[in-house]
Amino acid sequence: MRRLWKYQETYVALVIVLLSCAITLLNPNFLTLENLFDLLKSYTFLGILSIGVLFVLISGGIDISFTAVATVAVYTTMYVTLQHGGNIATVLLMSAAIGAGLGLINAVIIHFFNIPSIITTIATLNVYYGLLTVFSGGTWLYNMPEWFRRFAETNVISLVNPDGVPYGLSVIPLIWFAVILAAWVILHYTMLGRGIYALGGNLASAQRTGFNILALHLFVYSFMGLLAGIAGVVEVMLAQRVATNSMVGKELDVIAAVVLGGASLTGGVGTLWGTLLGVALVGIIGNGLTLMRISSYWYNVFIGLVIIVSVGVSAYRRKLQRRRKMSVEVE
């Protein structure tokens, strides 16, 4: 039990619980299945991307380009699909494949030229997004195919709320759940997962232990790209149009959610559990502010405060601990 207080995840979970209680007291509509289902659907995009970012952060790198990767992947996919037709499987596969390919390019540059990942991916963000702007001319794609629209509207569980309005669990969060499951298996049950932690913890040690650094780099960044491609499709499912500029600019929101969930920007540290909590906190704040009927003018202030509280407490505890350790050494 005492060990739990060492993790930032614990504090984030605590903040979520407190916040949920407060919101529910003010508006019981918060703690309903309907709200949960709506939130899951709305935050699938952020949730999928956050898992990719988690992998990259654990490996000791960072990726800024994933929003551009997502945009390029889904734009190309839908452009082709609108002309030649397809189905939901081809759309997801194609977008994921393009995303993985672009991620692979990131990995190759980072590994072989040994350029810091932040610089590489800032550069590739501009290249990918720039090329898309050139070729698309900023034109948006409307009129998504009928089958695409229908898939996005599919519910796997259908219920009716007390007011007689039907609601349900959309098929969209299932994509997120599948990604979570895959990530969990990779991180906890494969040598690959161990390798990613090792790489982020200490590159030299990982190398000497016998991990294939190139393979790890290739996997981490193309996995990020693959998830970006899928997340791009999810965004289009929700908005029913392909916009060139709707995703680029959200990089730091995603990275912030992952860091909020306890992953370290210096690598080697981070859990799937924490990342889910980070995304949940971001989602609950946004949702809760409206449900508590707080004036929109106060939103930003509130969000900032919640972040400071949830990150601040654990950071302060770590600082105290370090001080305590130091004093031991002096004696």
């Binding site: 959200k250 730091l252 929101d253 990275i255 912030a256 959610a257 860091v259 909020l260 920007l265 971001v282 704040i285 946004g286 502010l289 939103y299 930003n300 969000i303 900032g304 972040i307 990150v311």
Partner: peptide, 11 residues
């Protein structure tokens, strides 16, 4: 919009 303040984290 709202999440923009999250940026503070990774200033």
């Amino acid at each position: 919009m709202r999440a923009r303040t999250l940026f503070g984290l990774s200033l």
